[in-house]
Computed example of a mutant assay.
Amino acid sequence: MLTTLRAALPGRGSTMPGDVLEREVAVDPVALAKYAHVCGFTLRDELPPTYPHVLAFGLQMALLAQAPFSAVGVVHIANAITQHRPVRLGETLTLAVSVSELRPHRRGRTFEFLTSVRAGEELVWESTSTNLKRGAGDDAVSDDWTFEPPPETAEWRLRDDLGRRYAAVSGDHNPIHLHGWAAKPFGFERAIAHGMWTKARCLAALRLPDAFTAEVRFKRPILLPSTVTFGEAADRFAVHGHLEGVLTA
Score class of each variant (00 low, 15 high):
Phe188Arg: 03
Ala211Ile: 04
Leu203Asp: 08
Leu123Cys: 10
His179Tyr: 10
His179Arg: 14
Leu247Val: 13
Thr146His: 14
Leu132Gly: 06
Glu126Ser: 10
Thr128Ser: 15
Trp125Ser: 12
Arg164Met: 11
Asp172Ile: 05
Gly241Glu: 10
Glu126Gly: 08
Lys184Leu: 09
Pro151Trp: 02
Ala167Asp: 04
His177Asp: 07
His242Met: 07
His194Phe: 11
Ser129His: 05
Leu178Asp: 09
Ala238Ser: 13
Leu132Val: 10
Phe230Gln: 04
Lys133Gly: 06
Gly137Arg: 03
Gly241Ile: 12
Leu224Asn: 03
Thr229Asp: 01
Thr227Glu: 04
Pro151Asp: 12
Leu123Val: 08
Ala205Ser: 11
His242Leu: 08
Ala204Thr: 08
Val216Thr: 11
Ala182Gln: 06
Pro221Gln: 02
Arg159Pro: 07
Asp144Arg: 09
Ser170Arg: 02
Val141Met: 04
Thr153Ile: 10
Ile176Gly: 00
Asp235Tyr: 04
Pro151Thr: 10
Trp197Asn: 01
Met196Asp: 09
Asn174Gly: 04
Lys184Arg: 15
Gly245Glu: 01
Ile192Leu: 08
Asp160Gln: 14
Pro185Cys: 12
Ala154Arg: 13
Trp125Leu: 13
Leu123Asp: 12
His177Ser: 07
Trp125His: 09
Phe147Leu: 08
Asp161Pro: 02
Phe218Lys: 00
Gly163Thr: 04
Val169Phe: 02
Ala234Phe: 04
Phe147Arg: 05
Arg190Asn: 07
Val228Glu: 00
Arg217Trp: 07
Arg190Ile: 03
His240Val: 10
Asp210Asn: 12
Arg236Tyr: 07
Lys199Ile: 03
Leu247His: 03
Phe188Tyr: 10
Phe188Pro: 01
Gly245His: 02
Thr198Pro: 03
Gly180Glu: 01
Lys133Ser: 09
Ala211Phe: 03
Ile222Cys: 01
